[in-house]
């Protein structure tokens, strides 16, 4: 008995998950960080390892021993709370940011309420009156689960494509 046959990704599921990711991007781009936190499961692991330049063919270029983020819901909440203070200068005056989320691919798991979701991101940001536009791009691997009839992001791993980050800081969530 194959899992894929039993747990299919229906068009409805795909649409619901796509909507969640689009809603998330909207919250982040509109500084609704507390609403964003509500989309995350209390047990979330939120990670962002470094990308490295590696020699060889068919070898991983994810530096699993090195990170930009290794967060729990508690540490994310601390980061979020900071963004509601008056003196988090990096976001006051606020930057203008957009998360463009594409290439969403949903995969079923053994649990009918749980899906593996891969998406691409392009993050763009404008700051103060400078003409420079900052950007970052890469891929996200999520586990999204229906808990008490609500979709929650249970784990996220963000893989940047750059080994040298070109945004002047990483005050954003991805």
């Amino acid at each position: 008995m194959s899992l894929n046959v039993q747990n299919k990704v229906t068009a409805d599921i795909h649409l619901e998950i796509t909507n969640i990711l689009n809603m998330e991007a909207y919250y982040l781009d509109n500084r609704k960080y507390k609403e964003w936190l509500e989309l995350l499961a209390d047990t979330i692991t939120y990670r962002m390892p470094l990308r490295e330049t590696v020699e060889g063919v068919g070898v991983s270029n994810i530096a699993e021993d090195s990170s930009f983020f290794e967060e729990t819901k508690t540490s994310l909440r601390t980061r979020v709370n900071r963004l509601y203070t008056k003196s988090a200068w990096v976001e006051n005056p606020s930057t203008r940011q957009r998360h463009f989320i594409t290439n969403i691919y949903v995969e079923a798991t053994a649990d009918p309420d749980e899906y593996k979701v891969r998406s691409y991101f392009l993050f763009m940001r404008s700051r103060a009156s400078t003409s420079d536009i900052e950007q970052m791009f890469g891929e996200r691997h999520d586990i999204i689960r229906k808990i008490d009839n609500e979709w929650k992001i249970c784990s996220r791993t963000i893989y940047p494509d750059q080994s040298v980050i070109t945004t002047m800081n990483m005050s954003m969530f991805l």
Binding site: T78, R82, S87, V90, T167, N169, M170, S171
Partner: peptide, 19 residues
């Protein structure tokens, strides 16, 4: 984890320094 929360590009202290 404490380092990542404070320093480096994603650290909350260093973010404000970059500004």
């Amino acid at each position: 984890r404490g380092y990542l929360g404070s320093f480096g590009p994603s650290g909350t202290l260093e973010q404000d320094d970059t500004e």
